[in-house]
Design a binder for these strands. Structure first.
Lengths: 346, 346
DNA sequence: TTGAAAGCGGTACCAG
DNA sequence: CTGGTACCGCTTTCAA
């Protein structure tokens, strides 16, 4: 970028350049090596107490702060954990989980880098991520990583590459969070209740396929295994009008139940049903997912699929373990459990 | 950390050390300088087409990925934007905003580092952040920055330090997002509707004071300026039992309206009121905030305070501008507007 | 107990 | 047109 051609060091500029360990050394009257030893409390070397004090005071006075990049360049590795982020709001359940994870990683002294990778291919993303030399990458599935991509990351120093979702990538650690299971539980619950023609809401919002596709597929698998059960995908946007439109053409569809992707969509749709004069659950059974608190507020109370997420602590611990001992770690974990919660809407 | 004492370069190890520009140079039969020129498409230097091709092919073959830390060490600055994160889920409105911001920054080619700073003082946090030499810091208020802290960050290379919230810190850019205004609008709306004794829900969840305190204060300011209006803080947790307990002792409180912090708390409380046999809005008027879609689903439809947030794009643009030209930029922006939306619960 | 010096991986100046 | 080389800031032998 075009730097203005200014003299390298205007003597006495208003904001004196950021102090380096050299500056501290000079002020303390010692060498840079000594500064490093003191400030890092090096065990292997004995430094006299007066020297230590001098160094500390000098550092304090200058407001010295070590340069993380220089440090990790020298060290040959970073403490960066790369967390590719989805570009759509992913619902309270997952954002809470991600937030927890973030915190737990910080507590373990990792630096969390959020990396939005919209529109990047697996190759491009892997390259971009590798530039940061992260010690771990936790990919939630926005980007589909190939075996080759995983190798790229590993050669760039990643001790752990973690993928979530149903299918494992060779070379990566797999955290199994099978969204299909949610669809299975929902559909099975409806079938148990005697329903046979089941609609499955598929959000029209982009970026949710990651969740919605396997949930739909799970429901379909139930239909395949139980005689006489049918499943129909129902596109719907997260908006009152869209829900109303769907409710409007409902009777023509000949369905007797709906699995509404999650509780938010379910609430919207259930309200639309009621406004359209349909009775829940008599005319149509409604089930959501995620077990949101707010789902219990509507009447009838919303049935749902409760999803047991791992705590952020848990996953952070796993990551840490994989980083410390990449070989001696289980490469596949089941982290998610789903169970239907019957309330009054089914 | 204790490295296992292995030979520096086991010939033909399974994962060959990450290739450097030296490796590329060797393979292409040129110097590192040439590699750098070619890979960065240096304009100032003319490199022959055959050489370029050789270099590119070598880089491709080795799977060369430049080392971001080394690059920015040399460059003397990073493209890191540091985003301190709250440790509590902050509600859909703000998480959406943060997500947008994150994306917009990435599109402008910044690297977003989420930095949880729980339990750190301003001084500690500023030091920890400064280690990363971020080019910008966007503090949403989890940590209260002093003038001195801002100076520390600036000396460490931060071209923009941005604080949000009502009060500006000297030296920092202030993005004014005054939560008090939300309380003002809510209370004023209730007063307009003829209510006089107003309860204000204050979430018991920790970490929300940042929002709840100013919202309460805003309501109080209305009470002070209008004769005969009283405001009573009401602690409540985000749980059905807590809402039910509050509803249970409601009649004893002698209130005729409640501003319930936000729509989520409002929905919970309104349901509890109805379950307790209180009529909304006749016996008690309820208003929330944030204008969530779900708030329109209950009956009566929830009145709320709509909050106009800036887009993530907008803020990212401001950050970028401040980074490019730190001096030539407005230091104070009003980014939030709040307006009461009357529906049926008031 | 302390200091000199060799890098870590890039970039960019200056010669040739 | 290309190569040698001097840094960026820090850690860590190895000697003194």
């Amino acid at each position: 970028m075009s730097q203005s051609p200014k003299p390298p060091k205007p003597p006495e500029s208003p904001s004196p350049a950021v102090p380096t360990s050299t500056d501290v050394a000079r002020l303390a009257g010692v060498s840079r090596a000594t500064v490093s030893y003191v400030l890092n409390n090096a065990e292997a070397v004995r430094i006299s107490e007066p020297t230590r004090r001098k160094v500390r005071e000098a550092a304090e006075e200058l407001g010295y702060v070590p340069h993380a990049a220089a440090r990790s360049l020298r060290a040959g590795h970073t403490r960066i954990v790369l967390l590719p982020t989805s570009h759509v709001p992913i619902g309270p359940l997952y954002s809470t989980f991600l937030n927890e994870l973030q915190w737990a990683l910080r507590r373990l002294d990792y630096t969390v880098v959020q990396y939005g990778s919209l529109g990047l291919t697996g190759d491009e993303a892997a390259r971009a991520w590798a530039e940061l030399r992260p010690v771990a990458v936790i990919s939630l599935g926005e980007i589909t990583l190939s075996e080759h991509n995983v190798a790229t990351l590993k050669r760039a120093g990643a001790r752990a590459v973690i993928t979530m979702g149903p299918d494992g990538v060779p070379g990566a650690h797999a955290l199994v969070m099978d969204q299909a299971e949610v669809g299975v539980r929902a559909a099975a619950h409806l079938v148990d209740r005697g329903r046979r023609r089941i609609g499955v809401v598929v959000p029209q919002e982009e970026g949710l396929e990651l969740f919605s596709a396997p949930r739909l597929e799970g429901a379909r698998s139930v239909a395949r295994s139980v005689e006489g059960v049918e499943v129909l995908p129902l596109p719907m946007a997260y908006a009152e009008e869209s829900a109303a439109a769907l409710a409007g053409r409902w009777t023509g569809l000949g369905l007797d139940a709906v699995f509404a992707y999650n509780d938010e969509y379910a609430m919207l749709l259930m309200r639309a049903f009621q406004d359209a004069g349909l009775r829940v659950p008599q005319d149509v059974a409604v089930i959501g997912a995620d077990d949101l608190l707010l789902g219990r507020l509507l009447r009838p109370r919303l049935s749902t699929v409760h999803i047991e997420m791992p705590t952020g602590e848990r996953l952070a611990g796993l990551v840490d373990q994989a980083v410390r001992e990449p070989s001696a770690v289980v490469r596949r974990h089941d982290l998610m459990a789903a169970v239907a919660v019957a309330r009054d809407s089914t």
